[in-house]
Amino acid sequence: MAGDLGGISELDQKKYDADEQVKIICLGDSAVGKSKLMERFLMDQYRPQQLSTYALTLYKHTATVGSKTVTVDFWDTAGQERFQSMHPSYYHKAHACIMVFDVQRKITYKNLSNWYKELREYRPEIPCCVVANKIDADLKVTQRSFNFGKKQGLPFYFVSAADGTNVVKMFREMIKRAVDYKQNPSDFMDEVLQELENFDLEKKEDNSGEEDELKVES
């Protein structure tokens, strides 16, 4: 386990504390088109970094938000979704989340609730959106309303990674929201939770009996 943790810290998640760095994660079932969306947004400038040990692909992007230049790391799963659950480090320090489903496959829509539940366990407050991909397959789906996320007030996008519909708009808005979230000092929920987790951890260490090693992450 120590090796595992050492490995994850190689990804150097501390950098996400810096002002000009944001981390945006993608969630959703296998083959909903998460990577295709990334590639459509980044076009030729994408240089994904494959971390196959962690079933993870990182895409780096530089964006301008207002007058600021920010570096965005997009985290994309590379098969890790197969386990119906992501490693906690995937969520760690994320500033926004893009949840994707395939309009041709109902099961990927139904599974959103599981992904969302897991996301909120780790990141209760970060901005999140719901993305309906592959609308090019059947434009009629855009006349329907998909109610998942409405209650939570999550923005919803009809997109197509193939023809590009609304892909750039969605990414730009999510980058903006990630940056806003990071800059909003009134939103201290995550820090509070962090403190609580540390507190839990200290208590557990004192007991030194059972260990919950996943918590060491935070």
Binding site: G33, K36, M43, D44, K134, D136, A137, T142, Q143, R144, S145, F146, N147, F158, S160, A161, A162, D163, G164, T165, N166, V167, V168, K169, R172
Partner: peptide, 30 residues
């Protein structure tokens, strides 16, 4: 299907930030 519907950068009508507004006053419930 992806390749069939794909719009390439080389296409004359390629728009990088293509936006389409799908908000409708009445929508069927899914």
């Amino acid at each position: 299907l992806f390749e069939k519907n794909r719009r390439h950068t080389a296409d004359p009508n390629f728009v990088y930030d293509l936006e389409v507004d799908f908000t409708k006053p009445t929508t069927d419930r899914c």
